[in-house]
Structures are given as C-alpha cells and as structure tokens.
Design a protein around this nucleic acid. Structure first.
Lengths: 141, 141
DNA sequence: GTTTCTGCAAAAGGTTTGCATATAC
DNA sequence: GTATATGCAAACCTTTTGCAGAAAC
C-alpha cells in the first residue's frame, strides 16, 4: 500500500515526504471519513509541526492521483475517503458520523441513470441521512 | 402555489414578506438549482434593496417548512431546489451546471439501501458528475 | 402596538495562497 | 545543487450573526 502511494507520487513528479505518507496512512486506516481538521488533529501527536495547509495541499494531490475521494454529506466541510470503490455513505443527523453503506449493489442503478441522461457519466456520489443505531437507542431511553 | 407558501409561512408563525415570496417564486420557476448568490443576482433588478443575508435567512425558513431542499454537488456553495420529489442530480464538470435526472425509478434502490443499513433513513441525495451534451459537442470540435 | 423582518456591516468558519525556509532527490 | 514541499500568516469566499430601523399583523 505504501509502495503504491510512493510510486504513484514519484510517477507524477511529486516528492515523497513524511507528511504525505502520514496523511495517507492515517486516512487509509480509518473508516471515519475525517475532514481536514480531524486529520490534522489526529496527526498532531506524531507530527507536531504539521500545518493544516499541508493537509489541504496533500488532499489535493491525493485526489489528483486517484488515491482519495472527496465527500460532502451536506455539512460545512469536506470529508475524505481512501476507499475508492463505489459505495454510498450514510450520515447520522444526530451525532454527525458518516459511515459506509456496504453490501448493496449500486451498478444496476448507476447504469440505469447513466443511460437515462445524455451526459457522459464519470462518477457519482450517494448520500443517505438518518438516525444511527446508537442514537436510536439513546432516543428511546 | 403562492397560496401554499403564504399559508405555510403563516401557519408556522412566519410573516409573509415580498422578499420571501420573490425568492420562492424565482426558485420554483427555474430548473437551474441556483445558489444564494445566483438568486440574489437574479432578483437585483426587481428588488434592488434585497440583501444576500435575506436570501440565506429565507432559505433557512423555506427548508424548515419543507418547500426547498439543499444540494451540494461537490461545489463550494450550496444550491437550492424547490422540487421536493426524490430525484438524482447531475453536474457537468466542464460548464458547472446542475440538472435534474428524470425518468429513473430510485425507489427500489432506496429500499435496498435502507434495508442494508441499521439506520432509520430519513432521506437521501444522489449526485452524478460527467460531461453534458453541450460540452461533449464543444470538445469534439 | 407588538412582533418579526430587512439590510447593513462585522464576524465566523473552512479553504487557499504567497512566501521564506527546509527537505527530497 | 536544483526543484519541490512545508509551515506560517494573510487572504479569500461562503455563510452566519447582531443590531437599528422598517414592515407585517
């Protein structure tokens, strides 16, 4: 996996830096879909000199070389996901967390919509919102 | 239609003002999914004293009383749609316009995902991106 | 007459940019 | 040694907020 990002960066003329590796490693080992500030905070302990600007600049590059996708689930900030397969996301409107939706076959739906428009479709993003199991339990107490 | 917004506003304790009517009228008679600034600019001619803040405050109320939905198709600003039925949106990555996707039945897909998560699903938003017919034509010249 | 709204200006929050120093190669 | 990256601070852009005067009811 690190081989992957290292060679991808080099191939496109970008340099391989500890900051870039740390950011990508953190992102690819979480399922929390963090935004820039969450990534920055998470890395503070190990990389105390890292700046928010570096996180943003790195996300720009990772997006460009196809290692991350950018999410907006209706919030003020963008979130990032290192899982590049097509999958819907669901956001809990109470606690705010964003989770992956697995075990759903979106291909048929994507095909249907692709054929329903005259657009040359390059990608898509599906967002659900609702109340997560945890918050449902809290509500019923 | 105006009857609808008028009584909906009054019922919830909001006052009926020319600005609110103008904003809702403009939004419900376009398919361009404008953001706040586009709405503001569009209304400048007829309502020269209207402020951007009023547009934002009005959208907040219209969202609350269920007359508009808020979109984010991966851009920096939010767009607004007075069509409240469930339908996907598609954004052209070249010219930036956002259009509705019609004639697609999303119910089966929504049901499948709803059942695939443990969330209590309240709503969803589907965004496609690609190249619109116009821009495809321009590109091939 | 009371309550809510508008419009302005200022503030806030997320993201981008410019630049000097530091690091990768 | 050269080219690119980092980190800081300032700038930027969208959206929100506070408040005095205005409009709705």
């Amino acid at each position: 996996m690190e081989v992957c990002i290292t060679s991808l960066l080099r191939d496109k003329g970008f340099k391989v830096t500890p900051q870039r590796l740390a950011i990508y490693n953190m992102l690819s080992s979480t399922r929390s879909h963090p935004n820039a500030e969450m990534i920055f905070n998470e890395l503070q302990a190990m990389y105390p000199t890292m700046s928010l600007a570096t996180v943003y600049k790195t996300m720009e590059i990772l997006k460009e070389i196809g290692l991350v996708q950018v999410l907006n689930a209706g919030e003020d900030s963008f979130r990032y996901d290192a899982v590049m397969t097509n999958h819907p996301h669901v956001r809990c409107t109470e606690c705010g967390k964003v989770e992956d939706v697995y075990d759903v076959n979106i291909d048929a739906f994507v095909n249907e919509v692709s054929q329903g428009t005259k657009y040359q479709i390059m990608g898509q993003q599906f967002y659900f919102h609702g109340i997560c199991p945890n918050c449902q339990r809290k509500n019923s107490n």
